[in-house]
Design a protein around this nucleic acid. Structure first.
Length: 205
DNA sequence: GTCCAGGGCCGTT
DNA sequence: AACGGCCATGGA
């Protein structure tokens, strides 16, 4: 029998066919380390923030040639604050970005090196960094490092709530629910979660 | 002018 | 363990 959750996945997939094309391109492209680092930076900048504002912050960073965690680590915190200010909460986020960058440059040689580490050991380490909570940690693991862990965010909660798919909205409970009902595959997790976000932005729930 | 967006931390209970 | 206040900008 097919889990109900999987039916919703297939339904969303059918409902947003033009996204399918983009998705296939995203899957095929071999991600460069720089791109993975950008995903990490974006995961922090977008905390409780509209993506439009995050894009403005990215434009500033690009203009200043700040395109890696190492460069963020070397930057003066005040300068970093100024560059990312359009993304809001800029003082805490500058600190958060610095904290993650420090963790990265001091413990790993490259993104490949980081990627080699097992999921759960990595997740625990991420969660110890100030500024990295469960959602940000899992976004980085899933989207930047291709690790099979399902991201729970506000859209995911609204999706679950609307269709009454699960009684609890607590992070761990929901994540277990998704992972128990889906094949353990980072591609599936990425695509399903992305579809939930698209549908959410589209005011479906 | 008001509301709010893909969180997380911290202090209080 | 759970909850409220706080962090800040730009677009609707």
């Amino acid at each position: 029998m097919i889990p109900r959750l999987r039916k919703f996945y297939l339904l969303l997939k059918k409902k947003y066919p033009d996204y399918n094309h983009q998705w296939n391109l995203w899957l095929k492209r071999r991600k460069k380390d720089k791109e993975r680092e950008e995903i990490i930076i974006g995961a922090i900048l977008t905390q409780q923030t509209n993506w439009k504002n995050v894009e403005k912050a990215f434009e500033n960073l690009k203009r200043a040639k700040i395109d890696s965690l190492k460069k963020i680590f070397c930057l003066k915190i005040k300068n970093l604050e100024k560059l990312i200010s359009p993304a809001g909460f800029y003082k805490v986020k500058a600190r958060y970005l610095f904290n993650f960058s420090k963790f990265f440059v001091e413990n790993y040689r490259s993104i490949k090196d980081l990627k080699k580490e097992p999921l759960f050991s990595l997740r625990e380490k991420f969660l110890k960094i100030k500024g990295i909570g469960p959602e940000t940690a899992d976004s980085i693991l899933l989207y930047a490092l291709d690790k099979p862990i399902f991201v729970i965010d506000e859209y995911t909660r609204r999706f679950i709530l609307k269709y009454r798919l699960f009684p609890s909205l607590k992070y761990q409970n929901l994540q277990d629910f998704f992972q128990k009902n889906l094949k353990k595959d980072f591609r599936l997790y990425q695509e399903f979660h992305a579809l939930i976000v698209i549908a959410g932005k589209n005011k479906e729930f």
